[in-house]
Design a protein around this nucleic acid. Sequence first.
DNA 1: CTGATACTTAAGTCATAACTTAAGTGAGGC
DNA 2: GCCTCACTTAAGTTATGACTTAAGTATCAG
Lengths: 112, 112
Amino acid sequence: MTADLDGLFQALADPTRRAIVERLSRGPASVSDLARPFRISLPAVVQHLAVLETAGVVRSEKIGRVRTCHLDAAALSRAEQWIHDRRTAWSHRLDRLGDYLAADPNGPKDPA
Amino acid sequence: MTADLDGLFQALADPTRRAIVERLSRGPASVSDLARPFRISLPAVVQHLAVLETAGVVRSEKIGRVRTCHLDAAALSRAEQWIHDRRTAWSHRLDRLGDYLAADPNGPKDPA
DNA sequence: CTGATACTTAAGTCATAACTTAAGTGAGGC
DNA sequence: GCCTCACTTAAGTTATGACTTAAGTATCAG
């Protein structure tokens, strides 16, 4: 489960790959379509796609000689959720700390 | 702005660093506290902390000889938001496609 | 003042990642 | 059948990342 997130965040850590995700968020595209905006070679783009696909962010099917790629929202959800949970855990802790200080500005004992 | 996300996702792509974030989501901790659960050397943990701090996920202050670290929710928010935006753009596209197909199952012309 | 604690700095090693070019393979158009 | 297009496979190169050990530098306690 945690190794899962390794690949997911790793996949999103590269600007080319995020640009691919960005493009795919507007709809499916072929490999050549995806490669066109970039100055890197086509095999390089395919390698990026492989990383995204291994991470589960992108899925693809080949029809004839064209491979069509699209996003998988579920994978993105997992990454989003992980960040969300940690962020809110920390934020709520800060909230409670604020409440605590507001309720008793002189601070009795450390509740920890 | 996009280079920002590089570091952010890169920081979250390592299991040790995510464990550190997890720990910090429950409250601030010193460098030694953070290092204790791991079998790697202390300098290695400090290097992980440097990555997290450069990414903006963690901040720290040194008092006396103890450095205390805590999360920065804003940085986590940026990563969360980026994923959220792409994920929902894609999901809503699927919704609209579903509506479109439901409204006219025979499909007139391709609107693209 | 002395020693221990809590990092900090500095190399150096080894594996992985991001490319490249070159040479396939297989579907489609003429 | 032959050529082109859309990938695919295979090396090989170079730069990054995640560690390590060894040797500092400030606290702080006694």
